[in-house]
Design a protein around this nucleic acid. Structure first.
Lengths: 182, 182
DNA sequence: ATCTTTGTTCAGAAAAAACTTTACGTACTT
DNA sequence: AAGTACGTAAAGTTTTTTCTGAACAAAGAT
C-alpha cells in the first residue's frame, strides 16, 4: 500500500522530469543533464554528487560535469552545509531569472561575437570599395554584402536593447509576472 | 589584382559566415547548416541545392536536409523561378521576424509540453493527497512537488504572455526597432 | 605525517549525430 | 511511352559527443 502511493508519486514526478529534460535542449543542455536538473527540482534537500549518481544510476564524473553546466547557467547553486565535506547543490527556483540569465549569457555573447565579426568585415569591405580598378562584379558583391551586414547589425542593435530590458527587469512592466486581474 | 580583390571580399564574407554559423547552435542548428545559411545570406540570387553543394563542398543530400531545417525555422524561403525545374532558396532577411518565429515555434512548443506534463502530474498528486493512510513522508513529498510545479507553472504562464507580445509585435513598443533618437 | 574522503582531469569505450552514397519516386521532356 | 532531372529516403560510414573508470590533487581526519 505504501509502495503503491510512492509509485504514484514517482510516476508523477518522472513525467515532469522527463518532459523538462527533453525540452532543455533549448538551453543547449543534454538530456542527462536535464534529468539531473529535474531530479534536483523535486528534492527538498540540496543534493550531493553521490546522491545524484545514485538517483540517476550514473557515474559521479558525469554528475560533476552535469552540475557544473547547470551552475554555469545559474540553474543550480552550490550550498554551504557545515558538518560535511561534500558539496551540496540545489536548483535555483527563480525560473524567470533563470530564463533571463540564460539569455544574457548565451544570446548576448553570440550577439557580440557576430557584431564584432560584422563590423570588422564591414570595414574591410568599405576599404575594398575604395580600391582602384575594382571590377564591377566585385564591387557589386561588396555592396550587397555591406547591405546585408547593415541589415543584420540593425537587428543586433535591437536584440541588445531587448536583452537590456530583460536584465533590468523592465520587461516585467510590459509583461508582468502576475497576470493583470480582470 | 582582380584575384586580390576577390580574395579580400571572400575573406570578409567568410569571417561573418563562420561566426554566424558557430553561434547558430543557439537555434539548435548544426555548424554546417549554419554555414549554409551564411553562404546564402551573401548571395544576391536564390540558390539551388546544386549550387549550395558546390559552394560548401558537400553532398546534395546534406543541402537538402540543411535547407529543410532552415525552412522549418522560417530562416529561408523557397522561391518560384519559372523556366527551371530546380528549387531555389533564399534567406529571409527580416531578422527580427526570424527571431520571433524561432521563439514562437520552439519555446512555445516546449513550454506547452512542460505545462501539459505538469498539469497532469499535479492532478495526480492532488488525488494522491486524498488517499487514506497516506504516510507522512509521501504526503510531504507530494506537497513539495505540487509547490514546485505551481512555481514553474507561474513562470510558464509568464513565458506564454511574453511570447505573445513578441508574436503580436507589441514588444516593439517597449523595445523599438529603431532606437529612439536623443 | 599518514591515511581518507572528495571533486576533477584524462584516456578510452560507448553512444549519438552528421555526412555520404546508393537507390527510389515523382514530374517534366522528348 | 521512355528517358532524364530533381529531391529525398534509407543504409552505411565517419566524426563527434557523451559517459565511464582510473589516476590525481586538494583538503580533512586520525
Amino acid at each position: 500500500m505504501e509502495d503503491k502511493h510512492e509509485e504514484k508519486l514517482n510516476k508523477a514526478q518522472e513525467r515532469v522530469i522527463e518532459t523538462l529534460a527533453k525540452n532543455m535542449e533549448l538551453y543547449g543542455i543534454t538530456m542527462s543533464t536535464g534529468l539531473l536538473y529535474g531530479t534536483m527540482l523535486f528534492q527538498d534537500k540540496a543534493m550531493t554528487l553521490d546522491e545524484m549518481g545514485e538517483a540517476l544510476g550514473m557515474s559521479k564524473t558525469s554528475m560533476s560535469t552535469g552540475v557544473r553546466t547547470l551552475m554555469d547557467l545559474q540553474m543550480v547553486d552550490k550550498i554551504w552545509k557545515k558538518g560535511t565535506r561534500k558539496d551540496h547543490y540545489e536548483v535555483n527556483l527563480d525560473w524567470h531569472q533563470t530564463f533571463i540569465d540564460f539569455f544574457s549569457l548565451k544570446w548576448r555573447a553570440a550577439s557580440e561575437q557576430n557584431v564584432h565579426a560584422m563590423k570588422k568585415s564591414r570595414l574591410e569591405l568599405q576599404s575594398l570599395l575604395q580600391e582602384e580598378e575594382l571590377s564591377e562584379e566585385v564591387k557589386a558583391r561588396a555592396e550587397t554584402s555591406i547591405t546585408r551586414i547593415d541589415n543584420a547589425l540593425a537587428y543586433y542593435d535591437w536584440l541588445s536593447r531587448f536583452i537590456d530590458t530583460m536584465e533590468s527587469h523592465q520587461i516585467f512592466e510590459l509583461v508582468p509576472k502576475d497576470p493583470v486581474k480582470k
